[in-house]
């Protein structure tokens, strides 16, 4: 599912009576990757918080983010066969925030730290909505 970047009304909470985690997940379910911005740093915050980590400054604004990022670190997990080795990545989002995620389908041996990736929203039939990443050859 593509990430909506045309939604300019991101400050409208989609689940106004819930905490920020539920609001973030509601945005994901609606196909939007929305994060809060820390007004003091101008950077987005991940995961969502009631107030800015470290300062307690207010976080009132939900804004769409590009989903673009770079691989900060990765590891290839080897579960017992027949499970295939699978990469686990830490991605630094361009707008701010570090995400633990996966790069489904990517050759684990082809990953490099610093490589560009782009987020893709996954809304499973059962379970929690989340984001995974794909290699971003356009970057």
């Amino acid at each position: 599912m593509p990430i909506s970047s045309e939604d300019g009304t991101g400050s409208e909470p989609v689940a106004p009576d819930t905490g920020p985690e539920a609001q973030f997940l509601a945005h994901l379910r609606a196909g939007r990757l929305m994060l809060q911005r820390d007004p003091e740093t101008g950077r987005t915050v991940f995961p969502p918080r009631l107030r800015a980590p470290g300062t307690g400054a207010p976080l009132t604004h939900w804004a769409p983010v590009s989903g673009r990022g770079t691989i900060h670190a990765f590891t290839v997990e080897h579960r017992r066969p027949p499970a295939a080795p699978e990469a686990l990545v830490l991605v630094d989002l361009d707008e701010g925030g570090r995400v633990l995620s996966r790069i489904p389908g990517a050759d684990p041996d082809g990953l490099t730290i610093g490589a560009a990736v782009r987020a893709r929203i996954v809304v499973p039939d059962e379970g929690t909505p989340h984001i995974v990443f794909d290699p971003d050859p356009s970057a």
Binding site: L25, A73, T75, L88, L90, L100, I113
Partner: peptide, 26 residues
Amino acid sequence: SSAVEAPHRPMMPVAGYALAAMRHMH
């Protein structure tokens, strides 16, 4: 795991230390 980590089923704790090791190597 939190709501943002759990869907990825990371092999914690070993994968967390592995990520740090990869970064140190890099």
